[in-house]
């Protein structure tokens, strides 16, 4: 594995020739590596993304979005973030159209609601709850996909962050994970997949699930069926923790323990994303890989 990373990061090395650098001492490096412990007196979000088409496909059908901002207002500065992963269903026509449409419609609907807060001088009070806003955005996306790419489908895992609250809308088998400061990693979404349902019902064991032939079959997807019901819930951002959104191109091939290990060994969020993508590719890269990592500082 180490060799692999060495290979991966060999190329940019030549730049050193022209750069003037003041070498950091060991202590400084350690403090940088330990990352977010550099406390911030104002809460703020940081995020990073990674994507890869994988090793075995020609087409990228995943779409991601990351918007990180701070809302200035009379109750202080409020961190604002919108992060989405959508995985267009392969085998359906226009998987990439579906995931793309989902991202644009959901983000567009949500950002329009927040437009006054972000860009207007006199914000009108929002008359809807965060859960209502994200629900209506998913509903819009459902309609748009059915209109513009009928027959196609996509997963959608969207996290809307305001202050310390994370409101999640979820359909399909992309996932949101919480990585806690104490070193635990835990999915916070439930896959809407046949294999997960069989596992929940006790028909197959987790081991059997890992090798189940129809692992890609979803029973709920955006763009598919009538009366779509996304899972919507609000949870607090774990203190000193990290929120990860990813497609099954990552979680399906890299175990939670390896995700955790790679994350903890990476010096910062951006490198963590790159390393996670690299480890999914190293494991064969059977599918498109998408990952978004978000931290709340302060």
């Amino acid at each position: 594995m180490l060799d692999f990373f060495r290979k991966l990061f060999k190329k940019p090395a030549p730049r050193q020739d022209t750069a003037t650098t003041a070498p950091l001492d060991e202590q400084q490096i350690q403090s940088i590596i330990s990352g977010p412990s550099a406390r911030s007196d104002i809460q703020q979000l940081i995020s990073a993304c990674g994507q890869s088409v994988g090793k075995q496909r020609d087409l990228n059908e995943d779409s991601i979005l990351a918007i990180t901002a701070t809302l200035a207002g009379n109750s202080g500065n409020t961190p604002f973030g919108l992060y989405i992963v959508a995985d267009g269903m392969g085998g359906h026509q226009f998987g990439e159209v579906a995931s793309n449409t989902a991202i644009r419609t959901v983000a567009g609907t949500i950002m329009r609601k927040f437009h006054p807060y972000l860009f207007n001088l006199k914000p009108e009070p929002l008359d809807e709850s965060l859960q209502e806003i994200i629900l209506s955005a998913v509903g819009e996306a459902q309609k748009t996909i059915q209109r513009e790419a009928p027959g196609s489908g996509t997963t959608l895992t969207a996290a809307l962050i305001l202050g310390q609250q994370v409101t999640i809308a979820h359909v399909g088998d992309s996932r949101a994970y919480m990585i806690y400061a104490d070193g635990r990693i835990e999915p916070v979404t439930r896959d809407h997949s046949l294999v997960k349902r069989l596992e929940e019902l006790g028909h197959i064991s987790p081991d059997e699930a890992a090798n189940y032939p129809h692992r890609n079959v979803l029973y709920r997807a955006l763009g598919q069926g009538e009366g779509l019901e996304p899972d919507i819930f609000t949870i607090p951002f774990p203190s000193a923790g990290t929120l990860m959104l990813c497609s099954d191109g990552l979680w399906g091939v890299v175990s939670e323990q390896d995700v955790l290990h790679t994350f903890r060994e990476s010096p910062n969020l951006q490198r963590a994303c790159q390393n996670l993508v690299a480890s999914a590719n190293a494991a064969g890269g059977p599918d498109n890989i998408s990952v978004v990592l978000i931290q709340l500082l302060g």
């Binding site: 209502e132 202050g163 609250q165």
Partner: peptide, 13 residues
């Protein structure tokens, strides 16, 4: 109502 206790955003109604 469920509001964010820190800033008053409506989480849900």
């Amino acid at each position: 109502y469920a509001l964010d206790a820190r800033n008053g955003w409506i989480l849900w109604r």
